[in-house]
Design a protein around this nucleic acid. Structure first.
Lengths: 119, 119
DNA sequence: TTAAAATGCAACATAGAGGTTGCGTATCAT
DNA sequence: ATGATACGCAACCTCTATGTTGCATTTTAA
């Protein structure tokens, strides 16, 4: 065992993953991600178009996404251009895969048990 | 076009996905999912063990997960046993894949453009 | 039968998310 | 130079998510 127990590490991982999921857990933010998924960086004003909220609200949402590492902004002239960062998405995929794998392993164990019971 | 515009449908999808992501966007709920990922149904009290919150709090979290379709509870005697439902997880995977695909397609278009520029 | 276990229901508290408005500043375009 | 564009900051508001406590109800087990 290292300095941290397995439990602590798992808990830290859980908190990290939860933060990423939470960032996507809002319709407006998910819509922003959709807009940005075409790979091109977009300004705040541009991202506000088509939304039912204020530019300020969108700015706050972008901040949330940025804190979660899902997007990254860079100031160009008078514009603040945001673009997607796919790395956290891979993290989420990995987590979902982990859950599925646990599940599948459980099913296999159950099946083995039942078959064993048949003999 | 059907009765609903594509935009409306997309928006509805986005709201649905956001609800699922939001359900996982909490450390306690994610920990509950972890516990349940071994495939066995567990009672509320059992799920409360190891948590830093009250049974009532866990109950509320389970309700959130249930509303999102991630878990399902069934009353057996004096216990309320909850188990995971993997279907929404597949939905999330699909969404993440969609974003990745958009991204990859964008990169390909960019690459094609650059190569075209080279000639 | 009776104490313990598991849960549900309801009232309550509170911090924070999500949103708006107002105003100031920097930058672009003409 | 100057109006329009894009943005940041800060104050403020409101609602809801999260959590607690208290009490009643149902089941189980000795």
């Amino acid at each position: 065992m290292g300095a941290k127990s397995r439990k602590k590490v798992l808990e830290a991982q859980t908190v990290k993953y939860a933060a990423i999921f939470a960032a996507l857990g809002d319709p407006i933010r998910l819509a922003l991600v959709n807009k940005l998924s075409d790979g091109t960086a977009k300004s705040i004003s541009s991202l506000t178009d088509g939304t039912k909220v204020t530019r300020q609200a969108v700015t706050k949402h972008l901040r949330v996404l940025e804190d979660a590492g899902l997007v990254q902004g860079s100031r160009i002239g008078r514009e603040n251009l945001f673009e997607l960062d796919l790395r956290p998405f891979k993290d989420m995929k990995d987590y979902l895969k982990f859950v599925s794998n646990q599940w599948d392993a459980a099913l296999l164990r159950l099946q083995a048990f039942v078959e064993d019971d048949d003999e």
